[in-house]
Design a protein around this nucleic acid. Structure first.
Length: 123
RNA sequence: GCAACCGAGUGUGCGAUCGCGCGAUAUGUCGCCGAAAGGUAUUAUCGCGAGGAAAGUCCGAGCUUCAUAGGGCAGGAUAACGGAUAACGUCCGCCGAGGGUGACCUCAGGGAAAGUGCAACAGAAAUAGACCGCCGCGUUCUGCGGUAAGGAUGGAAAGGCGAGGUAAGAGCUCACCGGCACGACAGGCGACUGUGUGCAAAUGUAAACCCUAUCCGAAGCAACACCGUAUGGGAAGCGUUUGCCCGACAUAUCUUCCCGGGUGGCAGCGGUAUUUUAUAUACCCAAGCCGUUUGGUAACAAGCGGCGAAGAUAGAUGAUCGCAAGGCGAUUUUCGUCUACAGAACUCGGCUUACAGCUCGUGUUGCAGAC
RNA sequence: UGGGAUGUAGCCAAGUGGUAAGGCACCAGACUUUGACUCUGGCAUUUCGCUGGUUCGAGCCCAGCCAUCCCAG
């Protein structure tokens, strides 16, 4: 299962402004409905709606090694949740790493992400 | 044994399950995005998948482009000497200066008699003169002249010390030391060292301006090339990529720039060229790495043999568990905890900076003890 | 990738190589019954982001680092 990334900067700023959000010490989640979901569904050979994921990891987290690690953990945690519960599709989801993510294990982040996604009624 | 100095290396390992990027082969779709070029999608197997600094971007190159000879000024960089190197501001050797008992370490280390500037405070005076003192003369309450030996100031006061000399003094003269210079002699490729001869002018500062010598065209893979839109539209009159000047060349049917997409560049069981028709050869990749031999004090060079797959594009290595290794703490079965600095982005050679711990060298020095 | 700027007291900052201006804040005192305002005084103690170097002498000059910020495509 592939996950498409959000590449457009304007979608990020839109998500911060208008999206629904849930904030926890390790991460923050912003969600927007995806207006291009039908086009993306047609492009997908499995003919299903998918979520587009965006990762935001700022300089506050640390150097390149720390930032890369934060991105991996976020991606892995999302994948675990998706396979376990099945996240509702057809959304833009922006995952923002916060400072407390440094030194945390994937399970901790996945637990926080689950709470955030429950609050946003995506699972 | 203690305390040091120098150089070099390593940068946790193994296994299991799930997962990621790229390539190859097979399988599979004939769809979707796009105007086109092109991109993307299934599963399986195999292969490969971050560093010694990948970092800072401080130097030097390769590569690419700028239609077109060249030259000058400005500007920038470097600075003993000899060598190494593709090149360097790097490296090696050596000279000089400074530091350390020593092993050893540090040095932007050309020119201050080409010129200009600056040197606070103190001090009489800062590149030039006389405050105290000393001596001579005059006068009677302080003047004129000589003097840098003594005092005092300062980072620096026209070299130091002794003797001669003098009214008192002074390189004024002499010996020694120090300084500077040399078509001199000896050694060295050379910087330079030693000896000899001569000289008395010379405060410091060029990491102040400056002068001398040597070197430097510019921009950068977001370069650039190709494909498509497309015999497209728009702007400028220049242009050789910081400025100025001289000069040559080409033109308005010319030249340059801008407008929006993609691929290559980009990296290897591959690519290009030639020959042939599926293989062979050469080159690139790669001024690469490892081993070894020879030459050299060394940096390094040459020969021989072997190795050779990271190439993303919101940016690939993770998660969990177990075992092992090392350190620390409690304890002495064992338990807990920690394992640095840090992430390739066109490619190399250096420099600088960050770094837990560990290892190595018949390495070297000083001190103490024993023989 | 290329280019540039800044760092001085808690804050804002000036500063030709020669004792580090000034304002706000703070502290002490005066004035007041008390406070505010005002006035007077103090406050950089080896120190100009850090480490070296040049110099008699460095906040200033030079080199290398560190941090923050900005610009171009």
């Amino acid at each position: 299962m592939k996950y498409r990334a959000i590449c457009e900067n304007h979608l990020y700023s839109k998500a911060y402004k208008k999206g629904k959000k849930a904030v926890l010490p390790t991460l923050a989640v912003y969600v927007l409905p995806d207006y291009r979901k039908h086009a993306l569904m047609k492009a997908n050979p499995e003919k299903k709606y998918i979520n587009r994921i965006g990762l935001t990891v700022g300089k506050k987290i640390g150097g390149a090694v720390q930032r890369n690690r934060a991105k991996r953990i976020l991606r892995h945690a999302y994948k675990e949740i998706d396979t376990a519960y099945g996240v509702k599709t057809g959304h833009l989801i922006v995952l923002v790493a916060r400072e407390a993510i440094g030194g945390k294990k994937t399970q901790d982040v996945a637990r926080d992400m689950t709470r955030a996604l429950r609050k946003l009624e995506l699972i």
